[in-house]
Design a binder for these strands. Structure first.
Lengths: 189, 189
DNA sequence: TCGACTATGTATAACGC
DNA sequence: TGCGTTATACATAGTCG
């Protein structure tokens, strides 16, 4: 992209590297923005320079928002993946199969739908699903530790904010609905 | 960058938009990777297609890791103050009308259809979503949007997995099916 | 360090199958 | 629908001031 072809490996010269960083960072964020607008999708990009400075782009409500969505997504993928493995490798295990799980979920979905869905219902449903899924073991303990730490941060933040928001949202569902003890994934904000 | 200049606004033609998404997504992730290698910095990019599929790049341990770091940088200040501001003003400001919400839902419906679900599935999905949306419209609409996205992701996943399970439960399960080639989201191993 | 400036490599819009 | 090709717009490496 310039006077000569560039090999994709760490630029040795510190100065050149810094210059390239400025240019390419700008280019990347521009591309991210163009992608989000042209294709109407949610994009988040986060860049940490090695001097510790943060650069970001997000067309969603916030980078935190999309990253939490990311986290939820990966969580669910991970759990469903684990679930599939269990289902396939031990079809006769004592755990619920995925098929049973989905059936149960759909039943509940219909029931709930008949009564009219509310946010609380959806969260409950999601809780049920997650709880059932979590019955199936994940072997990735390191990952779980990381997530727990993340959860703690969130709960702390929730408590902190809830105090301030209490005046404005006296009719919000009580906190325990949102952050049940076993929840690892759902944190909506 | 092609046969003609492109204006940065949502591509109207659905097909063109999808094609552009594939190309530009690939390009963006490539650029992100190049930036991280050439300049030796931490980069994370997360893209959610409207059908709920996730695409990502991160040279750090994981996007979750970047999330942690990101949180430590901005959450305590910018994010919380933003939330408080939202809380203070949300009583009087609307984030999205029902019309806009439905429009968006329909757009997403189109996209999902393009990804191969049946019309019946989609109608069902849309009904559920609209029911949910209408029931709780009186509450924080911004929050609703986030939750809605999450729900759609999960429903899409459930349907996707159900197809897989249907196959797996009728035939004998060929193990290699577990790791579908199209998985683009799993980065934890 | 800091922008401009180009020459040149890349990305990609429109086509073609 | 998706991949390959081509023509063009864009991004940017090296350079100069």
């Amino acid at each position: 992209m310039g006077r000569r072809k560039v090999e994709i490996k760490r630029i040795q010269d510190k100065n050149s590297r810094q210059v390239a960083f400025c240019k390419r960072r700008k280019g990347l964020l521009k591309k991210a923005k163009a992608l989000s607008i042209l294709c109407d999708v949610d994009v988040a990009a986060v860049i940490f320079s090695n001097s510790g400075r943060l650069h970001e782009f997000s067309n969603a409500n916030s980078v935190t928002g999309i990253l939490q969505r990311y986290k939820s997504h990966v969580e669910a993928e991970k759990e469903i993946s684990a679930e599939i493995q269990v289902a396939e490798h031990s079809k006769y295990s004592r755990f619920m199969t995925v098929g049973e799980l989905l059936q149960r979920t759909e039943r509940q979905l219909e029931e709930t739908n008949a009564d009219g869905l509310t946010v609380t219902d959806l969260i409950h449903l999601e809780n049920e699903l997650q709880t059932a899924i979590i019955q199936i073991r994940s072997r990735k303990e390191k990952q779980l530790l990381e997530e727990n730490k993340f959860l703690e941060d969130n709960i702390a933040r929730i408590k902190k904010n809830r105090k301030k928001m209490a005046t404005d949202f006296t009719d919000l569902p009580p906190p325990h609905i949102i952050c049940g003890q076993q929840r690892v994934t759902l944190n909506f904000f």
